[in-house]
Design a protein around this nucleic acid. Structure first.
Length: 284
DNA sequence: CGCAGGCCCTGGTAGC
DNA sequence: TGCTACCAGGGCCTGC
């Protein structure tokens, strides 16, 4: 599942492979891939065709690509979205959703997405963060991220800690895997109340988030279910370093207690029951 | 407004 | 073997 480290790995790949190139052909193969582009596929294609891609940027799990027209192409990988760079005579992939051909005749950019939670759209304005993405908080690896402001916002919330970590308007880029990994590393239970969190706990959590995301990025991300690969089809290797996620019944790497899987928010949460004791007043 | 829960979607797998 | 149920989960939408 693409979270910050995976999306950033993809961004770096696209920065090398598509920035500076001019789009020549656009083919939308599945309507769900462009559902966020309300003006329709014809408009989507028209606003891309003939345009040069100027940069590859990211905020949280969103990517955007400023175009020489002043517009920007926005992309979200959802759960299974992939950007792949492939020679134009390569056969279509089973879940090919959008194909971009370039004026230089080089490799195509293909958006492939089995579960169709991802999508592309073209919006006005690409110089700064597009308006559609303004609701997103900065991510914890961004220099603009303000630790004190985050801690203050966190403590204003009346919810559970994991819910807050997954809220992209509070802190962006974290999904289910890295939320669990970060909470384990910081020895915090997912149901700790945000409004009662001590500053020292919040700081420890932030440090854990950065350590986990940074390590995963160094490994090229986490390929867990085979659905995430980089633009060249390569897997990420952080899955071999996961401490709790997907390790139910196996010993905690710190204390040896057995890792538990619990259902929470209709999702799985993995935790060490000893390192991450349930709070007296949990908040879900 | 803040917060919680449902829904979207596909392929793999477990269970009968 | 073939069917059903369940699982993976990010983000948008709705309702309280």
């Amino acid at each position: 599942v693409p979270e910050l480290p995976e999306v950033e790995t993809v961004r770096r790949g696209l920065e090398r492979s598509v920035v500076g190139r001019t789009v020549a052909a656009v083919e939308v193969r599945h309507p769900r891939a462009t559902r966020r582009h309300v003006a329709g596929d014809a408009d989507f294609a028209a606003r891309l065709r003939g345009r040069r891609i100027e940069a590859a940027r990211r905020r949280g799990k969103y990517l955007w690509f400023p175009l020489d027209s002043g517009d920007a192409l926005i992309a979200h990988l959802g759960m299974s979205g992939q950007f792949r760079l492939v020679e134009r005579d390569a056969p279509d992939e089973p879940h090919l959703r959008v194909r971009l051909g370039f004026a230089d005749g080089g490799p195509q950019l293909r958006f492939i997405d089995q579960r169709t939670f991802g999508g592309l759209s073209v919006v006005d304005g690409g110089a700064g963060v597009p308006g559609m993405l303004r609701h997103l908080a900065a991510d914890p690896l961004d220099g603009e991220f303000d630790d004190d402001a985050f801690i203050a916002s966190l403590r204003r919330r009346r919810t559970g800690l994991k819910r807050a970590l997954l809220d992209q308007s509070l802190i962006s880029g974290i999904g289910n895997i890295y939320a669990d990994e970060s909470l384990w590393r910081a020895r915090l239970h997912y149901a700790r109340a945000t409004d009662a969190l001590r500053r020292s706990d919040a700081l420890r959590l932030l440090a854990a988030v950065r350590a986990v995301l940074g390590a995963a990025l160094s490994d090229g991300g986490t390929t867990f279910d085979g659905l995430y690969v980089d633009v060249n089809g390569a897997s990420g290797w952080f899955s071999t370093r996961l401490a709790v996620y997907g390790r139910a019944g196996q010993p905690c790497l710190r204390c040896g207690s057995l890792v538990r899987r619990e259902t929470f928010m209709n999702r799985s949460s993995y935790l060490c029951p000893r390192c991450q004791p349930r709070p007296r007043r949990p908040r879900w």
